[in-house]
Write a protein that binds this DNA or RNA. Structure first.
Lengths: 223, 223
DNA sequence: GCGTAAAGAGCGAACGATCATTCGCGCGAA
DNA sequence: TTCGCGCGAATGATCGTTCGCTCTTTACGC
């Protein structure tokens, strides 16, 4: 009941927003976003295949005929949502470059990612996307594209740190970079903050993990 | 085409196996397993919701009427497959106790898990189960049950190692255990061996991670 | 051993429901 | 007047599931 009322209110809000005076392209973009928001909610609730177009229409407060003016198919909505989610996810990792020290930079990147996944309750959608990527070529290539982008950034960032002597020279970046990303994704996907692991304690463990992997011989690098 | 022939052959094999002389309960159990194998193949190919009962019937080489003699619903098949997969997954972690040294035990447990997920191509099904667990109560409780089982085992094993002085006494096991499981699951889910990270190099990284987390102050513990 | 009734296993057409998508039409801004 | 937008009933396909039927296996009194 609460959810129904909430959805109704959201639909009304969306409608109200769509009614605001604006140019045609602006309104169109707003409607697209409204549909994507509604679809995301439905997909989180029931999965890509479990949510129907009627569900999405109801959540968005519009008819099927109207919705199909903006997206050619359900597949197109799925593709758009995966693209947006993965791009946002990849963007978050740019936080690593905010720190000069490589360990602290990677800690910041990992924690930014984990915190975002926790606070915006994005883990279920991420799991759904991972599962879909295994069988949907469009989703798979979207995911691969953004993963490669993040890995390239990590690779460059860690490479510079290695040149500065902050990372053990024996570390093989081609192996370490995908592994680090897998570790961070594992922590985010499991939503550890929701499972009794406070963020500040998790940060300590992330730091310990990074030191263990990037400085296995215990060299200081710096203070 | 190749797949079609393969499925046909499997169905024939299954039928032949079902035809072997055996008691009624034996045959029944064999048919149940045949359905579960077929369903798993279909679910990996199309997802829990994307695979139809007709697909499963075709893959298993039997009619809907026959299939429904063994499972009351599609939901029951999904539940059975999740239960079997998660139980097998949890069982693999028992490998940790094979080693006296805690680091090597955990390395063995993690690598056993990762290797199994890689060799039996179980990552897509695992991803599907994770996604389904977020919205299906039966699947969620199955997953939670086995996760708690594994965490309890880790907890006991690490606790004994800490008593022996192999782990830094400042380590908080209640926080470390879920985190370690999330890390291992992340590595397994990403199927790192298929993404250019050889198993032997991954083992080195897993060891470095465990040392970083369990012995953050660099104390030896033992040789 | 044998005849027979009961039960189990399998089939596949058929069911109602629901799915993604389309279409003809009315409305309002350009 | 034109054209984009929105509507919602309608469409054909497909979904999970059922049902009536046949055939085989089992149980059992004799």
């Amino acid at each position: 009941m609460e959810t129904l009322l909430g959805n109704l209110q959201k639909a009304i809000d969306g409608e109200a927003a769509a009614m605001l005076p604006c140019t045609r392209p602006e309104r169109r973009e707003r409607q697209v976003q409204r549909i994507l928001e509604a679809a995301k909610a439905c997909f989180v609730r029931a999965g890509f295949q479990g949510a129907s177009m009627h569900d999405i229409c109801t959540e968005a407060g519009m008819s099927p005929g109207a919705l199909y003016r903006y997206f050619a198919s359900k597949e197109a909505i799925i593709a758009a949502i995966c693209e947006a989610d993965r791009r946002e996810d990849a963007t978050l990792f740019k936080a690593v470059t905010a720190k000069a020290d490589v360990i602290e930079g990677m800690v910041l990147g990992a924690m930014t990612h984990i915190r975002h996944m926790h606070e915006s309750r994005a883990a279920p959608l991420f799991a759904e996307i991972c599962a879909e990527a295994a069988r949907n070529n469009a989703v798979e290539s979207t995911c691969r594209c953004h993963v490669e982008q993040v890995q390239a950034m990590f690779r460059a960032y860690l490479g510079e740190a290695m040149d500065r002597g902050e990372i053990d020279p024996a570390v093989e970046l081609d192996v370490v970079v995908p592994t680090l990303l897998a570790i961070i994704n594992g922590m985010a996907l499991n939503d550890l903050p929701a499972r009794g692991v406070p963020l500040e304690k998790l940060e300590t463990l992330v730091r310990a993990t990074l030191i263990g992997i990037l400085r296995p011989t215990g060299q200081p690098g710096e203070g």
